[in-house]
């Protein structure tokens, strides 16, 4: 092996995933996977469900799907992070199993579709809000079909309202607050964000 001359620092131009991007995305997913497992317990304990303002907590399940893409800016980061989060919550605390992987997939693909629609060139607040909304929409469809099949339409509408509010308004605020903090701490050196 030999290395000559300079190599560029941060991102390879074609958006190729470096190992660091992969592991950073996966660790964000893993951290939130554990967090979600805790959130599941709190949420179930609160008896929260359809129509409740507690649904504002929903961003806790969706955050990796936007945080990871904002940090690493790679195609597929949202889906990958969300799937890792789901797998970790399944394997570490035996929760939900295949259903968790399904909902992780839907939440991830929702956000991913929006970032892809902007050709992975925009990771600003409006796009993150849109990605959050898309992620919440698919999460809502999943929950409505599997958990809330008997619930009245007006309550479902309220459920969707709280979820979108959580994902499209609160989540971008939280995401950029986290990114700002990470940047201050120097944890994003060498990463595209």
């Amino acid at each position: 092996m030999s290395a000559h001359a300079a190599a560029p620092g941060v991102a390879s131009p074609a958006g190729r995933w470096r190992t660091r991007d992969i592991v950073v995305t996966a660790v964000i997913g893993a951290a939130f996977g554990v967090f979600m497992a805790g959130l599941n317990a709190v949420y179930a304990g609160l008896g929260a469900g359809a129509g409740s303002p507690w649904l504002l907590l929903y961003l806790g399940w969706l955050l990796p799907a936007v945080l990871a893409p904002v940090v690493v800016r790679r195609a597929g980061a949202g889906l990958f992070a969300e799937l890792v989060a789901a797998s970790v919550s399944v394997l570490v605390v035996s929760q939900w199993g295949p259903d968790a992987l399904l909902s992780g997939f839907l939440q991830g693909i929702g956000a991913e579709a929006v970032f892809a629609a902007f050709r992975y060139r925009r990771f600003d607040a409006p796009v993150v809000a849109l990605a959050g909304a898309a992620s919440a929409l698919l999460a809502f469809v999943h929950d409505a079909v599997i958990y809330y099949q008997g619930v009245a339409p007006e309550i479902l509408a309220l459920t969707l309202f709280w979820m979108i509010l959580s994902a499209a308004v609160l989540m971008p605020l939280v995401t950029f607050a986290i990114v700002r903090g990470l940047r201050e701490a120097g944890a994003l050196r060498g990463l595209p964000a």
Partner: peptide
């Protein structure tokens, strides 16, 4: 990191001069 050939990939920065390492590190 330079000996391991890891500079400029995961770690931002540049390498000047020449470095030859025979075989894997």
């Amino acid at each position: 990191l330079a000996l391991a050939g890891l500079l400029g990939r995961d770690v931002p920065g540049g390498l000047e001069g020449a470095l030859r390492v025979e075989g894997p590190v």
